[in-house]
């Protein structure tokens, strides 16, 4: 590795803090000491590479990837699509995007989810894809339902889809959640409210994208994901070996 260029530092005041009193589980799971900041090395600038041999084409279609032949899950059919970009607005191509979500009733297919809404026999709730050369990705799924969770006694998660993205380096690794335009539960959610800046919350809300919907079939929501950008100038502050 000849001239490693660093990624821009993560804006820790834009992200949620580790400790957020309103999200009770964070209290005992948040480090008390400050993070140690390090200048990036090969360990941070590199990251895993995935290819089309790792997935199969239908992995991004949650309407069919767990359904019985000829059947499909209950719920509002939607397309979730957008681009993965970096902070320089450059597309991030060939990167792995994984999603998971509850079904239309707000129930996850997980042995630890005890919510009384039923599991949908035709819905698994996870998908994955690689962005194309322009950073574009696309999933087909059903809109997830809201569901209650134990925090305060009557907290409800807004409808959301969990998204995991790799980028090109381990330092770009990100997990987030996307929400749906117009959902009144967003403003009342303690997990959303861990994010201090309202502009950062707005960036997690996908607008309805009627142009991308399929008439008589599925609505669409557009969600662009931004990963850390990278320096392009390579002025070393010290020549190698010194």
């Amino acid at each position: 590795m000849s001239k490693p260029a660093e990624y821009y530092q993560r804006d820790r005041e834009w992200h949620p803090p580790a400790l957020a009193q309103g999200y009770k589980t964070s209290v005992a799971r948040s480090p008390r000491y400050s993070l140690i900041s390090l200048e990036q090395t090969a360990s941070e600038i590199t990251g895993p590479v995935f290819g089309h041999e790792d997935i199969v084409p239908g992995d991004n279609d949650l309407l069919t990837n767990y359904a019985q032949p000829g059947e499909s899950p209950i719920g509002e059919r939607i397309i979730l699509h957008g681009r993965v970009l970096d902070e320089n607005a450059r597309p991030v191509p060939n990167t792995l995007v994984e999603i998971w979500q509850a079904n239309a009733g707000g129930r996850y297919r997980h042995k630890k989810d005890m919510y009384l809404a039923p599991v949908d026999p035709n819905f698994g709730g996870c998908g994955r894809t690689l962005t194309d050369g322009d950073g574009y990705y696309c999933f087909r799924t059903v809109k997830p339902g809201a569901y209650p969770w134990r925090n305060w006694v009557n907290n409800w998660r807004p409808a959301h889809i969990h998204i995991s993205v790799f980028g090109a380096s381990f330092s770009q690794r990100l997990i987030t959640q996307m929400y749906f335009e117009g959902d009144p539960l967003i403003a009342k959610c303690p997990i959303v409210q861990t994010i201090p800046d309202p502009a950062a919350v707005e960036q997690l809300i996908a607008p309805l994208d009627l142009n991308a919907s399929v008439p008589l079939d599925a609505l669409a929501y557009k969600f662009d994901i931004v990963l850390r950008g990278r320096r392009s100038t390579l002025f070393e502050n010290r020549p190698e070996g010194n």
Partner: peptide, 26 residues
């Protein structure tokens, strides 16, 4: 006019569904 990095959100209790579904039981 840099873009801002998408803010992180917790992976939640059901992260296994998305990233390790076999462990979630299917």
């Amino acid at each position: 006019d840099y873009l801002k990095e998408t803010a992180s959100q917790t992976a939640g209790p059901f992260v296994h569904i998305g990233l390790s579904p076999g462990a979630a039981g299917f």
